[in-house]
Design a protein around this nucleic acid. Structure first.
Length: 491
RNA sequence: CGGGGUAUAGCGCAGCCCGGCUAGCGCACCUGGUUUGGGACCAGGGGGUCGUAGGUUCGAAUCCUACUACCCCGACCA
């Protein structure tokens, strides 16, 4: 180890930037805070996309695509929605350039001013609901279950790699239903998909529940969410699913005739996860040796590295490696055989550890003689020697084992960093010095929540729906409370 | 927008206070050779309008002025 690495992944931005993912925030001021994701990082996102897309389709959703530009007037229609997003919108005002009078480059052609400015979508509710008006007439048109994979732009004052970038990639689902009940069920169904994905693919345990009014999506009646805990003790909102009531239907006049031949507004949901998940994945599992990618999302699950002195040896090793590679591929495992001669084995070992490849196989002359292969697992960094017989099943088991181990590790981290507190002193002390999730009673008022935020920077991350109610007294005001809620400092 | 910092090769930096010959180092890159079971070594080589504009000076990376950009902290962040 000749290089300096950030200790305990405390500077995550450095991981992203310098080591493996190579996601730079664009430096050009014109696209400040937008993300440049290099191929390896993007491959992780593609795996996430593929997995989620399949789940959405299995539950009856279809993909569609709507415009990047939203007429400004659309935003004015839903009052709290415009309030929530107005401060972070990029605006298109002109549609043409012309040669600069001084001959240097181009300038905006003032004559090509748009009559109405266009907003680059920060989210697509408005333009989608404007379209839905024409798509929905009767209860027979419902439910309308649509998802969109797209980019959105939110001109944040301050950006953080992956976690809050000015432009990001996401999916946004927008559904319309005949009844309130059905829309709420949809919201919860999606939340379950998100939670399942986080826990069983990303190996990141999450808390499920809903947001306090203060943290709610602009324009929603209820916002459900999953919250994860990062290794530095800060919370990360990993996905949200909103019950929008009839707010958008009323704002965009989307009515349908029900079976009784009466007109009613439709009920709506919207839900999304973004490239923030890539950041969350990294921050949940990485260690001092680099990324740790759970097997189910790893672009490369197994890497094979040859060790040899003479070219003849490489020929023999390659033969063996290709046999193993195709045996593993038949089991659906993605395998890379790195036979580049320009890097030493030691260099490659480190390289793939950075990249978080779950399993590494090394084959050298010794293994050729003994019919063995050296197997190293990324999560524990343990090395062992396997007989090559039946190697594909051994590796399949190992990958499953690693996936499970990562989840358990993250789960016990969360358990060790979840604290139940009953007094204000305890609360402040825990937030300041221990970080993590803090379970405390809250009187249910926005006022108290904001006071707590001002004094400690902690916010209510989630009000869990899958825990038992427990009466108590608000940790801040002393007023009665029905259940504990989850506080934390968040990204 | 407030407070602090930075800008020199693809990346990371030194040089600046106290102006001076051809602007230097590490990594990376290229060529040749020896290497290869945990980031190899030797030799040679390529790459810079020192953020931009102006000023002072015989002479500016270095001093002065303005501008621009980026980073950290804060405000902001469904």
């Amino acid at each position: 180890m000749a290089k300096d690495f950030p200790t305990r992944a405390e500077n995550y931005a450095q991981w992203y930037n310098d080591l493996v993912i190579k996601a730079d925030l664009a430096e050009n001021s014109a696209v400040r805070g937008c993300m440049v994701i290099k191929p390896y990082g993007y491959a992780i996102w593609e795996k996430m996309q593929a997995t989620l897309d399949k789940k959405f389709k299995e539950t009856g959703h279809m993909n569609a695509y709507f415009p990047l530009f939203i007429p400004k007037s659309f935003f004015s229609r839903e009052a709290s929605h415009v309030e929530g997003f107005a401060k972070e919108c990029a605006v298109v005002t002109h549609y043409r350039l012309k040669g600069a009078p001084d001959g240097n480059g181009v300038v905006v052609d003032e004559e090509a001013k748009l009559e109405e400015e266009l907003i680059i979508r920060p989210t697509s509710e408005t333009i989608i609901w404007d379209t839905y008006r024409n798509w929905i007439q009767s209860y027979r048109d419902l439910p309308l279950l649509i998802n969109q994979w797209a980019n959105v732009v939110r001109w944040e004052m301050r950006t953080r790699l992956f976690l809050r970038t000015a432009e990001f990639l996401w999916q946004e689902g927008h559904t319309a239903h005949a009844t309130s009940q059905e829309a709420i069920e949809e919201t919860q169904k999606i939340l379950d998909i998100y939670a399942d994905f986080a826990e069983n693919w990303m190996a990141v345990p999450v808390l499920k529940g809903y947001k306090s009014p203060n943290e709610r999506f602009a324009g929603a009646v209820d916002t459900y969410c999953i919250e994860a805990l990062m290794q530095d003790g800060k919370a990360l909102q990993a996905g949200t699913s909103h019950f929008l009531g009839q707010n958008f239907a009323k704002a965009f006049d989307v009515k349908f005739l029900n079976q009784n031949n009466t007109l009613d507004y439709v009920w709506a949901t919207s839900w999304g996860v973004s490239t923030r998940l890539v950041g969350g994945l990294i921050m949940a599992h990485s260690d001092d040796h680099g990324l740790v990618i759970p097997p189910k999302l790893a672009p490369v699950q197994v890497v094979i590295i040859p060790i040899y002195k003479k070219p003849e040896q490489l020929v023999q090793i390659s033969e063996k490696a290709h046999l193993i590679k195709s045996a593993l591929e038949k089991k659906g495992i993605s395998v890379k055989f790195d036979e580049r001669d320009s890097f030493t084995p030691g260099w490659k070992f480190n390289e793939y550890e950075f990249k978080g490849v779950p399993v590494r196989l090394a084959i050298g002359p010794r293994d050729l003689e003994n019919g063995t292969v050296e197997v190293a697992r990324r999560d524990t960094l343990e090395k062992s020697v396997y007989q090559i017989t039946d190697i594909e099943n051994k590796v399949v088991n190992l990958l499953e084992n690693i996936q499970e181990n990562l989840f358990q590790k993250a789960l016990s981290f969360r358990e060790n960093n979840t604290h139940q507190v009953d007094t204000w002193d305890e609360f402040v002390e825990t937030i300041e010095n221990k970080a993590g999730f803090v379970l405390a009673h809250w009187d249910g008022t926005t006022e108290t929540e904001q006071k707590i935020k001002e004094e400690t920077k902690a916010t209510i991350r989630v009000i869990q729906t899958d825990t038992r109610p427990e009466p108590g007294k608000c940790v801040y005001s002393g007023k009665p409370s029905k259940q504990r809620v989850v506080f934390a400092r968040a990204y």
